[in-house]
Amino acid sequence: MSEDQFSPDARETLAAVLDGIIPANDAASLPGAGSLGVASYLETIQNRKPELVEVFALLINALDAFARARDCDRFAALPLPARAEALQEIARTHPGPFSSLLFHTYAGYYQEDRVLEAQGVPARAPFPEGYEMEPNDLSLLDAVRQRPKMFRE
């Protein structure tokens, strides 16, 4: 396993963290970001941006340490209220790294096909299909057409 891939333990922690950041969306029948597999996206990103390896590892270690301080062996084993408390704590104590995690979590989650489809957006890049749009209703301009010239000579 290379250092830019998460270990099984780290992946378990991260999945729980991501579910805390973007929880399940029951109305859209969507799981949370962790259950949806956004950790794989984060692996891809830290492959491209090696400086993120340290950032994500720092947060994972800090959250697991938070759990151990409460007699729990890892973050994912904490009850949900304690997980939320841990995330609030880490957001306060590690604002820079946590902001970075949020950014990439949001970015990964909203590229997931299931999420896009739930939003009514085609799960694809804009090109090459593009988008159909309604024809222009230029009759809306009738009143403007009647105006005298507006420019100064």
Binding site: I21, I22, Y106, Y110
Partner: peptide, 30 residues
């Protein structure tokens, strides 16, 4: 689009993480 809405919402402090995330996104996106 969705990604732009999400990350700009995050940076503009309009899109919280955790509880309330989906409601806020629904109000922002499109």
């Amino acid at each position: 689009g969705p990604v732009g809405t999400a990350v700009m919402g995050l940076m503009g402090e309009k899109l919280p993480w955790g509880e309330g995330h989906h409601r806020a996104f629904e109000e922002l996106f499109d």
